[in-house]
Simulated assay, not measured.
Amino acid sequence: MKGIKVVLLAVFVACAAVFPLGAQEAPRALPVPETVSPELAHLIAAGPFAQWNTHPTTAAEWKAWAASLAEAASRELPALRERLGVDMEQGDIGGVPVFIFPPKDLPEANRDRILLNLHGGGYVLGQGESGTAEAIMMAGIGKFRVVYADYRLAPDFPYPAAIDDAVSVYRGLLETTPAERIGVFGTSTGGAMTLILTLRARAEGLPLPAAIAPGTPWTDLTKTGDSYFVNEGVDNVLISYDGWLSEAARVYAGGHDLKDPMLSPVYGDVSNFPPTLLTSGTRDLFLSNTVRMHLKLRQAGVPADLIVFEGLSHAQYHMALMPEATFHFTELGRFFGRNLR
Rank of each mutant, 00 (worst) to 15 (best):
G337N: 11
S168W: 00
V266N: 12
E180H: 09
E129D: 11
A60C: 02
S246I: 03
V7Q: 08
R171Y: 02
A17D: 15
V169M: 07
G183F: 09
F329H: 04
I196Y: 00
Q316Y: 12
V96S: 03
A26Y: 15
V234T: 03
G121P: 07
G186F: 00
E25N: 02
V184M: 02
A60F: 01
G183T: 10
D257R: 02
T54M: 07
F99V: 09
I141L: 15
L84H: 03
R28K: 09
I44M: 11
N289S: 12
F229Y: 10
A248W: 01
T132R: 13
G142A: 13
E39W: 04
V18L: 01
V251N: 01
W244F: 11
E89D: 11
P107W: 02
L9I: 13
M322S: 06
F336L: 13
V237D: 03
V124F: 00
I100W: 02
L297S: 01
T219W: 05
T189F: 00
E175V: 15
S246K: 02
P97N: 03
T330K: 11
F335R: 02
H294T: 14
D165N: 10
Y123N: 07
D92A: 07
T189L: 00
A26R: 06
T219A: 14
G126T: 15
I114N: 05
T57A: 15
P160L: 01
N53M: 10
L125P: 06
Y241D: 15
V169D: 04
G225N: 10
V266D: 14
D242K: 00
V124M: 05
F273N: 06
V167Y: 01
L297C: 01
A166I: 10
S246R: 02
N231H: 02
R341C: 09
A192P: 09
P275S: 07
Y170H: 12
L278Q: 09
V7F: 13
A320T: 13
A14D: 15
N339Y: 15
P103V: 12
L238G: 04
G183C: 08
L306C: 06
L312I: 05
Y228V: 01
F335W: 07
H318F: 13
P155T: 14
L40A: 06
E175W: 12
